[in-house]
Simulated scan of single mutants.
Amino acid sequence: MRPMNTQPPLWKASVPCKKIDAPDIVAALELAPPSPQAVLIQEDPFKDNGMVEALYDVMPDGDLLSRIVGKAVHVQLLPDADWIKLSQEGLPPVRAGRFFVYGAHDAGKVPHGVIPMKIEAGQAFGTGHHETTALCLSVLSALAKLRRYDNVLDIGCGTGLLAIGAAKLWREPVTASDIDPIAIEVTRENAVANGVGPLVQSVVADGPMHPILRTLAPYDLILANILAGPLTRLAPSISHIVAKGGTLVLSGLLHWQEILVLSYYRPHGLKLVDTRRDGSWSALVLERA
């Protein structure tokens, strides 16, 4: 979902909690400043206890996080290591719609009849384990049953997972953009590793008005799995490059943010046609008439 910079130092915020409270704490930490690099849940399989841990590349304000979360948040500096990669290694494969997302350690578990995508843990976010990424993959699978898309844009591509999924579905050119050069490099590597390197064009861009993205517009499918703040801020420029009859998939937002985000896109001629939810998170599917 979001790109990340894993250069040391790295800080960890820990919140002991009950398992039932963990998803709400994760949502609060995702939205609280500064933006975390990753948020993880550690659970005791035999007890009702859990631990939510968030990783940051700048020191977070523990007192502020404690007030936002409503529980004591402990902040500590971690020793130099690629903690993002270590936290994601060994994660189980993900099945979302027609897609099966896996790492090298699960190469022998790919079932028949799926679209496989090998995504290694690394310096960009998006291995399919976050609810919003899985929601977007499910939406892609559903859209593929209805029509083809010839010109696709993935805004905030991270590892390139959604762009690669679109390229595998339709075998048409896909543009993947991100503000982080590391994410773009990871996307290129993943596209090649998944056999769609020639189809995925990766662009370092700070928004839809980048010259390359404008030149390739309009797009008949745009995927934007970013947070509610950027979704509202970029609404005019994103809406401007959706083709007539085109589809827009928005995610990275919580249930209570759905109406807010929609209010920024409806004035630009986009209507809601589907809503999908997983846990506290949502994905909205809009169309231009």
Rank of each mutant, 00 (worst) to 15 (best):
I241M: 12
G207F: 07
A228R: 12
L221P: 12
E185A: 15
I238A: 03
T187Q: 04
V204T: 12
G246T: 08
P230V: 07
P230Y: 10
P236K: 12
A176T: 03
S239F: 01
E258K: 14
L216H: 13
R188A: 13
A235L: 07
L213V: 14
L250V: 04
I184V: 15
P211G: 02
I226T: 11
L270E: 07
A205C: 10
A243E: 15
V273Q: 10
T215F: 09
P218M: 10
V273M: 07
T175V: 14
A205N: 11
H210D: 15
I179P: 00
R233I: 11
W256F: 12
T187Y: 05
G245T: 08
A205D: 05
E185P: 01
L262R: 13
L260V: 04
R214E: 14
R214N: 04
I182K: 05
L231G: 10
I241L: 10
D180I: 02
L254Y: 11
G197F: 07
S251N: 04
D274N: 13
A183R: 08
P181G: 02
K244I: 01
L227K: 01
G197R: 05
Q201N: 13
T275Q: 12
V249K: 05
I222S: 11
R266G: 00
D274Q: 14
G269T: 05
P230G: 07
P208F: 04
L260A: 09
S251T: 11
S177Q: 03
L272P: 00
M209S: 14
G197N: 10
G245R: 11
V200K: 03
R233K: 14
R266V: 13
H240A: 15
I241A: 04
K244G: 08
G269M: 09
I212L: 13
V261A: 04
A224G: 09
I238M: 13
P236R: 12
I179W: 06
V242F: 09
A183S: 15
E189N: 12
V200H: 05
L254D: 01
P198F: 00
R214G: 07
Q201K: 15
L254G: 02
P211R: 07
Q257L: 06
L262I: 03
P173L: 02
A243S: 15
A191P: 05
H268Q: 08
R233W: 06
